[in-house]
Amino acid sequence: MSFLHQQEDVLIDKARQGDIESFELLIKAYQQRAFNIAYRILGNLEDANDVTQEALLKVYRSIHNFKGNSSFSTWLYSIVNNVCIDFLRKNKKAKVLYIDNQYQEEGYQREIPDEINTPECLFEKKEVKKMIHDAINQLNHEQRTIIVLRDIQGFSYQEIAEILNVSVGTVKSRINRGRSNLKLLINERLKVTT
């Protein structure tokens, strides 16, 4: 068992006993990624902030239920995903917004770093990112979530299976369907713009 894992176990035990400071230290390492997952699933900065806060509150309230069958981060991200699902069910008419610049200006990590900064390249990259983002938002929730978890957040198949509470085989088939549909959506957009 690594030192970091031992430290996490101590923080979990203290948080179970109601130590708020230990809970804050525990989630600090995962809060940004939890927000990124919510943002990519919901596509809206304000909604992602609200959902992340609600999910972290649920984690705090139910930390005594964490049994350690999976990693703490997997358990936390599964709660974030479930809160996103609940939010989408309640707000089926919620509009998805593309907020790339605001996302960067607010201090959130960019997931695709800019390497060439010519105005033409920056414009082209922004347009490509917008097209991909819009296409992801057109996927159904199940496919969008799987694409976000695997291709944007980089979770393993096993981690995704634990987060979504499905088999690894189900994860693989959903990823294949999601990627196929995403490719079709992007190709349709390319045909329209050319």
Score class of each variant (00 low, 15 high):
Asp114Ala: 04
Asp100Asn: 09
Val96His: 06
Tyr60His: 14
Asn101Ala: 11
Pro113Phe: 03
Tyr103Glu: 06
Phe72Asn: 09
Ser71Leu: 06
Asn101His: 07
Asn101Tyr: 14
Gly68Asp: 00
Phe87Pro: 00
Asn69Pro: 09
Arg110Asn: 07
Val96Pro: 01
Ile85Ala: 13
Asn69Arg: 15
Gln102Ser: 14
Gly107Val: 10
Val96Lys: 10
Leu76Asp: 06
Asn81Met: 12
Ile99Pro: 08
Glu111Cys: 00
Glu106Lys: 14
Phe72His: 10
Tyr77Val: 15
Asn82Glu: 12
Trp75Gly: 12
Arg61Val: 10
Lys90Phe: 00
Glu115Ile: 07
Asn65Gly: 07
Arg89Tyr: 04
Asn117Met: 02
Ser71Arg: 01
Trp75Tyr: 15
Glu111Asn: 05
Phe66Gln: 06
Val80Ile: 15
Ser62Cys: 13
Tyr108Leu: 14
Gly68His: 04
Leu97Met: 10
Ile85Tyr: 14
Arg61Leu: 15
Ser78Trp: 02
Phe66Arg: 03
Ile85Phe: 13
Asn117Gly: 00
Tyr98Asp: 03
Val96Met: 06
Asp100Gln: 05
Trp75Glu: 11
Glu115Ala: 06
Glu115Gly: 04
Ala94Val: 04
Ile116Gln: 02
Leu76Lys: 00
Phe87Ala: 01
Gly68Leu: 00
Asn65Lys: 15
Gly107Ala: 10
Pro113His: 02
Arg89Ile: 05
Leu76Phe: 00
Ile112Thr: 06
Gly68Cys: 04
Asn91Arg: 03
Asn69Lys: 15
Val96Gln: 09
Ser70Leu: 12
Val83Met: 11
Asp100Val: 05
Ser71Gly: 09
Glu115Asn: 00
Asp114Trp: 02
Gln102Glu: 12
Ile99Trp: 07
Val80Asn: 04
Ser78Met: 11
Tyr60Gln: 15
Ile112Tyr: 07
Leu97Trp: 08
Ala94Asp: 07
Gly107Gln: 11
Gln102Ile: 13
Gln102Leu: 12
Ser70Trp: 01
Ile99Val: 12
Ser78Val: 09
Asn69Glu: 14
Arg89Gln: 10
Glu105Lys: 14
Arg110Cys: 08
Leu76Thr: 01
Phe87His: 13
Gln109His: 10
Tyr98Ser: 06
Val80Pro: 05
Pro113Val: 00
His64Pro: 07
Ile63Cys: 12
Tyr103Trp: 11
Cys84Gly: 06
Val83Ala: 05
Ile112Ala: 02
Glu106Gly: 03
Val80Met: 08
Ser71Val: 03
Tyr108Ser: 03
Ala94His: 08
Phe87Trp: 12
Lys67Tyr: 07
Asn81Trp: 13
Ser73Met: 08
Lys92Ser: 08
Asn101Val: 11
Cys84Val: 01
Tyr77Ala: 08
Leu76Cys: 05
Ser73His: 07
Phe72Met: 11
Ser62Lys: 15
Lys93His: 10
Glu106Asp: 11
Asn69Gly: 15
Asp114Arg: 08
Cys84Glu: 05
Glu106Leu: 14
Asn65Ile: 10
Glu111Trp: 04
Lys90Val: 00
Ser62Leu: 14
Tyr60Val: 13
Trp75Pro: 13
Lys95Asp: 06
Gln104Glu: 09
Lys67Ser: 14
Ser73Tyr: 01
Ser71Trp: 04
Gly107Trp: 12
Val80Cys: 03
Tyr98Glu: 02
Phe72Glu: 02
Ile116Phe: 06
Ser70Asn: 12
Ser73Thr: 04
Lys90Tyr: 00
